Amino acid sequence: MPLQNLKTTPRPHLLVSIHDVSPRTQPAVELLLDRLAARVPVTKVAMLVVPNHWGEAPILPGSPFATQLRDWAADGRDIFVHGWYHRDDSTHRSALHRVKAGFMTAREGEFLGLDACTSLSRMIDGKALVERIIERPAAGFIAPAWLYGEEARTALIRAGFALAEDHWRVWQPQCGTVLFRGPVITWASRSRARIASSLLAARALPQLLRSAPVIRVAVHPGDTHVPSLMNSIDRTLEYLARYRIISRYIDLASEAKA
């Protein structure tokens, strides 16, 4: 089993990612990279790229941002497609989806309510754009806020991505193989209550997950506006990096298949 293979490695792994990478967020992304560089090798930090953030920040081939994105890929970083707009404009008929859309994220779960045809179109278009710019395959697809509706999951099987991730697992969409499981350690900045709860979670989860073969840490551009979150990110990464190998998603996927 893939997970058993990972358990036999001498040291467990740490995966680090920056979400919501786009022309709109580039200054904050650069701040995050500078901060992360003190604790992890940033060439192993995955970049989750939004092709047209909120419909207001398209990535244009040949633009300075596109050049930067290509340079990040050339450095060896995993480049994931992270939705298309990121914003959720769906009308949710399911009560569960309405709760997820309103409580789990501030209308940022773009793929929660999309039909299969629209999901597939946005996935394919995002993949084509990102791969045209970075001149290599995208590492995979990760839905905004880690939220997928059933139709989006169906579309993902056909979209041709090697990897996908939600809040609880990383898997290969085309065959359904789960590579590893476990929650993501992440932070929320949109309210005082969410800041407080994410700070508590960031203190508890590294210890609770200590025996896990893989731990994932995800940071967002909005974290840079809250000093307490940035300090918590520093502490969490400093602790985890002491006993874990900082890895890339594609390396672990290759190892799990071996």
Rank of each mutant, 00 (worst) to 15 (best):
R235N: 12
L129P: 02
A143E: 10
M47I: 15
T224W: 01
E150K: 13
V217L: 12
R242T: 15
A152D: 09
S90Q: 13
A193C: 00
R122K: 12
D78G: 07
P41T: 09
K257S: 15
L208M: 08
A28G: 00
I233N: 00
K44F: 03
A37S: 13
L112D: 04
A202D: 01
P206I: 13
L163Q: 10
Y249T: 11
P221V: 13
R244L: 08
A73W: 10
E165F: 11
S254I: 12
A241T: 12
V214K: 02
H53T: 05
A143S: 14
L60W: 02
R153D: 06
R244V: 08
A164S: 15
D88G: 05
T154A: 12
P183R: 02
L209K: 02
I124M: 05
S63V: 09
R77Q: 12
L209V: 07
L32M: 06
P27F: 08
G149T: 11
A241L: 03
Y239M: 12
V40N: 00
T25Q: 02
F80H: 00
I215W: 03
E255C: 03
S232C: 00
S90L: 01
D34S: 12
V42T: 15
R210W: 07
V184P: 00
I134P: 04
L15Q: 07
G55H: 03
S228I: 08
G140T: 13
G62I: 14
D223P: 01
G102D: 13
E108R: 13
R181T: 15
H167F: 14
F111A: 05
L156F: 09
A74F: 10
I18H: 00
